[in-house]
Design a protein around this nucleic acid. Structure first.
Length: 318
DNA sequence: TATGCGTGGAT
DNA sequence: TATCCAAGCAT
């Protein structure tokens, strides 16, 4: 970990092309030091934060962490980096091996995309994770958040890293609401850019620190405001911690969906040492139509393949 | 912009 | 037991 110098380049007034001055800029910089100092004292020692992780380690972790808790990612991450220490190592394997090694992290299309991204890196980027935000964005499975995260955490660049944790921290500390909007808004992106420290190294530190704050203290369920470095500055606290207003968060049931059936089918293929008969897959779900739809979906997504003899397997595996 | 896409722990 | 939630992306 670098020293917790809380210094922050404040927005130099006057002069030319930089970002437009904003009324919130001075107040914004007041947030930097407390959060970054808190991070220096409380940051978790996660493997992808260690220097030896490299950009590839950061990238693998970001794929795995999309919608998946840290505790479940840890063991799978270690195994992946041991097995495939460079992008080209993963690219040399059939995609089904990536899906199998993904285990039960969920959303296995991420494994496929990570495999494809590794192949693109091996072919088009000389085997090195690109440093350029736009080149990162062009890789499969990398969207706005992941591109910014890799550029920031792996390469120390200055980007607004807007994940669910940061959005919640900003919603509370700055906007004074319990939760951010359901979908990321232009206003949130603008706010994130305004709050970004000028110095790239400080901006990268800020990005990691605000994420960690959201993950450890400013949580969705029961925030620990008593331990929060922003508790005296927090707009939501100052407003009396008003409850969320508006439509309910969301409510997608899982039981009985195609997702559940896909998950059951893929679990069979993952654990099989050889291609499996259709009859084996048929046992995972009682309803034939939904079963067929789920299996067809897996195949069209590239997560499974049907052999000429009618058996099924993870793509390219034995 | 709304929806589909896994999985399992916490409350 | 049911619901919420976890470092999103692609379409």
């Amino acid at each position: 970990m670098t020293a917790t110098t809380a210094t922050t380049a404040t927005n130099a007034p006057g002069t030319a092309p930089g970002p437009p001055p904003s009324a919130t800029a001075p107040a914004a910089t007041a947030l930097h030091a407390p959060v970054i100092e808190w991070f220096g004292r409380n940051a978790r020692d996660l493997p992808w934060r260690r220097p030896e992780a490299g950009a590839w380690g950061v990238m693998v972790s970001e794929f795995m962490l999309q919608q998946t808790p840290v505790s479940r990612v840890l063991p799978v991450y270690e195994e992946w980096l041991r097995r495939w220490p460079r992008p080209a190592d993963l690219a040399a394997e059939p995609p089904g091996e990536a899906v199998r090694a993904w285990g039960r992290l969920g959303y296995p299309r991420r494994a496929l995309r990570l495999h494809s991204a590794a192949a693109a890196i091996a072919e088009r980027h000389g085997g090195e994770v690109p440093t350029d935000h736009h080149q990162l964005l062009a890789l499969p499975g990398i969207g706005e958040y992941t591109a910014a995260a890799v550029a920031s955490f792996a390469y120390g660049q200055r980007h607004a890293v807007l994940d669910t944790n940061v959005r919640r921290v900003f919603a509370r500390a700055v906007s004074g609401t319990e939760f951010p909007p359901n979908a990321t808004t232009a206003a949130e992106r603008k706010l994130a850019r305004m709050l970004l420290p000028e110095e790239p190294a400080t901006a990268a530190r800020w990005a990691a620190a605000t994420m960690e704050l959201g993950a450890l203290l400013c949580t969705a369920r029961t925030p620990e405001c008593g331990r929060c470095p922003l508790t005296d500055l927090c707009a939501w606290r100052q407003a009396g911690s008003p409850a969320h207003q508006g439509p309910p968060r969301r409510g997608q049931t899982y039981a009985g969906t195609d997702r559940q059936v896909r998950g059951k089918l893929l679990a069979v293929l993952r654990e099989a040492a050889a291609p499996v008969d259709r009859a084996v897959l048929d046992r995972v779900w009682h309803e034939p139509e939904q079963r067929a739809r789920a299996l067809g979906g897996l195949i069209s997504d590239g997560l499974a393949e049907r052999l000429p003899d009618g058996r099924y397997r993870l793509p390219g595996t034995t």
